[in-house]
Amino acid sequence: MLIETTGLTKAFGGLTAVDDVDVGIEEGKITAIIGPNGAGKSTLFNVISGFHSSTNGKITFNGEDITKKKAFNIAKLGIARTFQTTNLFEQATVMDNVVIGHRLRTKSGVFDALLQTPRLKREERACREKAEEVLTFVGLQKESDRLVSDISQEAKKRAAFAVALATDPKIVFLDEPAAGVNPEETGGLVALMRKMVNNGLTVCLIEHKMQMIMELADHIVVLNQGKKIAEGTPEEIQNNDTVIQAYLGGGEEAADAH
């Protein structure tokens, strides 16, 4: 397992958003985390990526304990993530947004800027090359000079992927990568996620679009009210009574799921 959580718990005041969850994410596979709204999926992401500290439990990455690490250090280890709202800087070009993604692999500081050191020049070039590489990878090389505010929602999603990829990650966590994107474009994003895995990356995603999950994921983890209620292959999940119960209990969620 590339990432493994044991007994992971996160409580906000009286509310336990993630409750004693054991999840394993296998290297080179696509793992999906599903569940009704408020199931604790995003919180789980936030805790793993170091955004929130866990109340209890343990997270390991490649066997190394990362439970107490800060978000930026976790990113340096090779764990990248995207947000539901892409969080890109709308008033800057796609390239400018992506170029900073590689900053964590550079060392230049204020004095390098003051003295215009060769190291700074070298690292700036490296960041730019990396950005070009990942923009090509996600298929945005043509849009690289456009303002983020001028590109489509689907292109923004790709740009957010590119920022994450520029950090040279081993695993990418994608928070609802296909939200707000129409069905044809969803297909393109699915292909891109497959391409990422084929290039040796590990992908873990939260998604509400069930059809997409069932054809994409190798492994599915189902959360409900903070607890893990099931996991397995798409077939196993589709035939799992507890999962069906949870979704039917969710009412409107069940209708959305198809």
Binding site: S49, F72, K76, L88, A113, E123
Partner: peptide, 22 residues
């Protein structure tokens, strides 16, 4: 420079800046 871009990234979104290792 890259350093100035780092500051702008923080201005834009501190959350995102942290997740890209800043």
């Amino acid at each position: 420079s890259l350093i100035g871009r780092t500051y702008v990234a923080i201005r834009n979104s501190e959350e995102l800046a942290q997740t890209i290792g800043i």
